[in-house]
Amino acid sequence: MGQAFEALSAWQVMLAGLLFFGGIYLVFGAATWLLTRHILPALGIGQPLDPRPLAPGQLRREFAQSGLSILLFGTGMIFPWGLLQLGWARLDPNAGWQQITLEILALVAWNDVHFWINHRLLHTRLLRRFHLPHHRSVVTTPFSTYSFHPVEALMLGNVIMLPMVLHDFSFWSLASVPLFSLFFNCIGHANYDFFPKVSYAHWFAASRRHHLHHACYNGNYGFQFTFMDRLFRTRLGAQAAERQLDAYRQREAGAGLRGPA
């Protein structure tokens, strides 16, 4: 498969990239929406995190911004392909499943480091204007995952470039990165607590942590894991958004007591 990828023309690489990123965005997003809005609530599994309604026109905006990100991610496949064409990187055609497993685990860890660094930079005064479009989704949806400003999309989308020049990865290891990245992203933006009984620090509580990042704007800059936020002391407390949510509940309760106007 790696040799077939290298043999593609530049236009074929970009077209394949567009179809790949567009396809996984729609499939993963729709599956997560169906799961968290219909299937899991009907089964009594888990619970929503933020009870506030979506902003007017939010889904339309998320699809529009995500479409631009998909355009950048898809056409951006020309860059890892270019590294291979120039001989600056190589794919390992003989990697066995054990090597591929270890490579994927290393890329999962690197993805969290890369995300934390870029995400933290996007919250600085210099770059935060490029991150604000993503934060317009205060109450997140699975379709918030690619809802980025183009600058943010470029920063987050170069995650495999450095690893490629440092090690000869299997094609399948590199192809796994957008898959597990989007999978974790959909979980983080689902606004749903899949495992309410696990601790806030647990790997399975990632949706709780990222919900707090959107509710509070700062803190919890990590992706799926907590090691970077722990190391740099940017982790939010488990109750960080309670004031905002309590204020919403009180307004709703007051409106209910007053009844219709």
Results as ranks from 00 to 15, higher is better:
Asn158His: 06
Ile100Asp: 03
Leu34Thr: 10
Gly46Asp: 11
Pro80Met: 09
Gly76Ile: 00
Phe204Leu: 15
Glu62Val: 04
Pro93Val: 02
Gly23Asp: 04
Leu8Trp: 09
Gly17Pro: 08
Ala64Phe: 12
Gly74Met: 07
Thr226Tyr: 04
Thr141Gln: 10
Leu49Arg: 07
Trp110Pro: 04
Gly87Ile: 05
Asn218Tyr: 12
Phe171Cys: 01
Tyr248Asn: 05
Ser69Glu: 04
Phe204Cys: 07
Leu107Met: 13
Gly22Lys: 13
Pro56Arg: 14
Met161Ser: 03
Gln239Ala: 14
Leu182Thr: 10
Ala16Asn: 14
Leu174Arg: 00
Val113Trp: 11
Leu126Cys: 07
Ala190Ile: 07
Arg136Gln: 15
Asp112His: 09
His114Asn: 14
Leu86Gln: 10
Trp81Lys: 08
Val139Arg: 15
Gln65Phe: 11
Gln250Trp: 13
Val177Asp: 01
Leu162Ile: 15
Trp172Met: 09
His210Phe: 02
Glu152Asp: 11
Tyr221Asn: 10
Ser207Glu: 05
Leu40Ser: 01
Pro51Gln: 07
Ala106Gln: 10
Leu86Ser: 05
Leu68Trp: 12
Gly29His: 03
Trp11Gln: 09
Leu236Trp: 13
Leu71Asp: 05
His189Cys: 09
Asn185Lys: 10
Leu166Ile: 01
Ala190Gln: 07
His213Gly: 04
Phe227Asp: 01
Leu127Tyr: 09
Val159Cys: 09
Leu154Ala: 14
Ala261Asp: 12
Leu68Pro: 00
Leu83His: 05
Ala201Gly: 11
